[in-house]
Each structure stands twice: as structure tokens, then as C-alpha cells.
Design a protein around this nucleic acid. Structure first.
Lengths: 106, 106
DNA sequence: TTTTCATATGAATTATGATTCATATAGCTT
DNA sequence: AAGCTATATGAATCATAATTCATATGAAAA
């Protein structure tokens, strides 16, 4: 990845579905179908999302018969999400989110 | 920031201009006008970008007469960009970018 | 060797974020 | 006060990413 293409990587994290997929794969590797069932989303949506995540090596994939098992490359993502959690604990109550249950001053 | 609003934070990093601003402020705090001159972009573009960055506490601002001096909140961002640099060194040559000079297999 | 199951892919549409441009605000200077 | 400077803001447009849907591929089962 070149200097000014950070945004291509981060674009993967700037998306709720992809974040959900990452969250799910953090626990255990899964097939596409398992993700589809767990997250209750359209299969092609999941496939498209996984494809983008794979382009940036955020996930890896191995084939198992007709299934493809996706796993999270935790090296980068896990510490990155930890950074954000810390950031939000310090700073956010919560100007940077749009959640309904947010008590922060907008 | 709540669990599933990571993407609002990351959206700030999924954008070349905002990344440029962050890069510039990493060195030294600057007024809007200084950023405008240095990055050679439209003033309102910079203001809009700064406003989004501020919502997530990625930057801080203080007023100095009619100027507003923006500074980078380095705690989260700097280690985060380091993570990516490491990630890209390990994994990217470079499937996750669209740069013309990229020698990676697409 | 056809059918079924798991997944991927592409094109069309839709949604979302970025840009632009005109204007507003608010501090300074005179 | 009037005018200038620095910055912000909002609405309209434009660009990009996400979604949908129909279909393709390819492995296994029958």
C-alpha cells in the first residue's frame, strides 16, 4: 500500500457490514453461509464485502470442499479496534456517533 | 462511540484529503488558511473536512483572534497509521491500492 | 452426467459522502 | 460603524461505494 492510499484500506472499516463481519470473524473463522446466517444478510452482499476485505488482506480464505472458510487477519485489525475503543472511552460521549442511545452533546 | 459506530470514525480516514490534513497536522498545528495554502485546496473543502475530523475528536481547535488553529490529537491516530504502515509492509505489494506505480498483482 | 449446494461476479440501481458555490458569521482594524 | 479577513455553513450537484438481482462457476452428491 502506498502512502496516499490509506483510504482504500480504511474504507473497509468505514462500513457497518464489514465491521460486523470483522467482529464475527474475530471469534472464529467461518464460511460464507455461516456469516450469512449469523448476520442475516443477503449472500451476495456478504461475498462482495468479503472480497473487498480480502483485497486489503484483512481476511484470508481457504477452500474446504465447496465451502470457503474466511478467517480474520488479526495482526492489524485487533490492535486497531483496541485503539478506537480507547479513543472512544476518552473522547466520546459521544460526538462522533449517531446512535440513538448516545448521551453525548451533538 | 458505541460498538457499531466505528465506521463513523473510520470514514474520516477513508478519505484522501482528510488523510492529507492529518499528515500535515502531524508535524505542526495550523490555521485553516495555512492548510489551504499548503495543500492547495478550496477553503470550504478544508473547513468541511476539519469539521468532520473534529466531530470524532481526531483534531482539536483553539481560537486565536480571527484564526482557528487546528491540532492533531495524536494519541489514537499516530499509532493507528503505524499499524497500517506495518500491515502494508507485510501484506501489500499491493493488492489493496489502486496507485499507478503499484507493482502488486491485482 | 445431471443436479444440487456454496459461493462469486457483473451490471443496474440506489444510497451516501464529497465537492462546489454562494453566503453567513464573527473578530479586527480603521 | 464600516470594511476587511478568516472561517463556517447549507443546499445543490457530483462522485463513489453499497445494494440488489440475475446469473455464472465449480465442487460434491446422486
Amino acid at each position: 500500500m502506498k502512502n496516499n492510499s490509506y483510504h482504500i484500506f480504511f474504507n473497509n472499516l468505514a462500513n457497518p457490514l464489514k465491521i460486523e463481519i470483522i467482529g464475527s470473524l474475530k471469534k472464529t473463522s467461518k464460511s460464507v453461509k455461516e456469516l450469512v446466517k449469523e448476520l442475516n444478510v443477503e449472500q451476495s452482499k456478504v461475498s462482495h464485502a468479503l472480497s473487498a476485505l480480502k483485497k486489503c488482506n484483512i481476511v484470508n480464505v481457504i477452500q474446504d470442499g465447496k465451502k470457503r472458510i474466511y478467517s480474520l487477519n488479526k495482526n492489524t485489525i485487533v490492535p486497531m479496534l483496541k485503539l478506537i475503543d480507547r479513543h472512544s472511552k476518552m473522547h466520546c460521549d459521544c460526538k462522533c456517533c449517531t446512535m440513538k442511545d448516545c448521551k453525548g452533546k451533538k
